[in-house]
Nucleic acid binder design. Sequence first.
DNA 1: CTGTTAGCGCATTCAC
DNA 2: GTGAATGCGCTAACAG
Lengths: 349, 349
Amino acid sequence: MVKRMGAAKVEPGKATMADVAARAGVSKMTVSRVLNNIDRRVSEATSAKVQRAAEEMGYVIDTTARVFSSKRSGFIAAVIPSINNSNFSDTVRGITAAFEGSGLQLLLGSSDYRIETEETLVEAMLQRRPEGVILTGGRHTVRTRRLLEAAAVPVVETWDQPEQPLGHVVGFSNAAATHALVMRLHERGYRNIAFIGGTSNRDTRGADRRLGYAQALKDLGAGRPRVISFGQPPISMEQGGEAIVQLLQQWPDVDAAVCVSDLSAFGALMECQRRGWQVPGRIAIAGFGDFEVARCSNPRLTTVAVDCHEIGRATGEVLLRAVEAAATGQPLPLETVLTPFRIVEREST
Amino acid sequence: MVKRMGAAKVEPGKATMADVAARAGVSKMTVSRVLNNIDRRVSEATSAKVQRAAEEMGYVIDTTARVFSSKRSGFIAAVIPSINNSNFSDTVRGITAAFEGSGLQLLLGSSDYRIETEETLVEAMLQRRPEGVILTGGRHTVRTRRLLEAAAVPVVETWDQPEQPLGHVVGFSNAAATHALVMRLHERGYRNIAFIGGTSNRDTRGADRRLGYAQALKDLGAGRPRVISFGQPPISMEQGGEAIVQLLQQWPDVDAAVCVSDLSAFGALMECQRRGWQVPGRIAIAGFGDFEVARCSNPRLTTVAVDCHEIGRATGEVLLRAVEAAATGQPLPLETVLTPFRIVEREST
DNA sequence: CTGTTAGCGCATTCAC
DNA sequence: GTGAATGCGCTAACAG
């Protein structure tokens, strides 16, 4: 670096710690100590001087250099299937809340429900040396698994109960939740319960829900599954509407439809209203996820409420402990946290 | 660094370029050239050797060091008000599409509609030396403005037409769009048009829409504005429901309600149905944003459709050019891109 | 086509 | 309390 004199002009945005040090008349090390606030062995006077100099120059510490030097990146990488889904965004909020005060930042990526995109994101993020990684679900490409193992970084998988976890797990069984919902509908007297949702494996949570539905029918001895499936996730409201029409054409005796998510359930509900099919009179409709639209629609939708924020909070907490443990060289034993769900019965069933 | 011998064992995920170089029997520089694939002056044979070595060691380049050395972080920082809003997530998709193939990644932050949170995010992101910054809207804290000026990084503000832009602008006038909607309703015969939305300045787009509404009434000589406002953004469906009740109690002669967003419009619509108020017979309802719920509801909602993806795409494109220009030392003259909107009339009016 | 030298901006470590 | 020396892993610039 060209030596810079005391209060010499520095291009905006280019000030370094050395420049601040020069301006404050101290050494770089003192500036570092003050700004990191980690060492109060610096006198009040010096500290004030340094802070004033930094403020005046609009100095912002170069995290890249700090990370490079300290070997701690200070961020966690997270990949969610969709950014535009209040369930996942609530989870993200929970994670962020858990990181409050820890000094860790969250770097978010959205996979669009594609494990190949997830792989690309994980690779890009690993290059920036995250201290931990959060993934949604338990299905990943072989290469994703290899990269994460090689990175030797704490991993938490959420929103699922993977059979072969990569690391820690915070989630619930989507199959069990849907199973419970079907059982409840059966208790309420519904006898011909169908399922609307993707058969696509791209949304593993959706696939699990379908499995739970099928298992419940089997347990009830209620005949074979009746499933209407549609395209790739994210499933839309409109697809729910198309599916319910197809469903009642194919099996007119169906008296209840369990939908893979509240969004498709809502679409189904609106389509029924357009066609004059009473809900729940002609057919009952239930969703999954307890989205706002399920609480506001008319009639309100029966659904499975998942504590998304708690999934996030618990995930953040486990990861925080794992990161700390990794820093001390004592890897945290793998944990599995089961989060709650509950059936919310409303006017649509 | 401890000198490492040729094929010495290296902890997984910890291999450096020097390790790969040693294993391949070449210099670090050659490894760098091969892996960055930026310099095909490397012979096929050498290249193959290096790639094999890297693959065998599970080597992943350390982007932190690369950024540190090359002075190019390879990412763009973006702050949006809410992650859980399909308008903004469509914009993000557009930005991502524009960056395709450029080698730039998007680092996303969500401000929760708070300019103080935006400030915190901008500061944290600037520490990682982004090559460009994207903000939503034109209202920012004084400190945010100072930090961005000091960073001397290209900035694009989206979704608004700021009076005092920080840099480039890609957006539309929310006031003009709402003005156009009100004019259209007036053409259709509605004479007592009210507005439902926040007076809060936290959502500047919402505030602009209210201004456009008020201006339209003035231009029409249609009496003074009738506004029902509620809490802080993000405005919920439920709040829309409460507002419409309050509206019709306060001004029973109102025949049309313009809502600050489709979400509140939907909530209002559902509440009307619960109370047996015909829409549009008793009251017409219009929203803003063309969310999926507006296309699916029954009746479908009249709204203002914004080309969110195009906002993102144009934003990405402008920023890309600005970043390239900045790299060559020739700052791009400030641009303002006006994106289109259109009134979509549906069954609710 | 490939190697060598130097240094990015900070934190770590030790010395004063 | 404060400062000076060292090096993190990589790439730019130049040399061969």
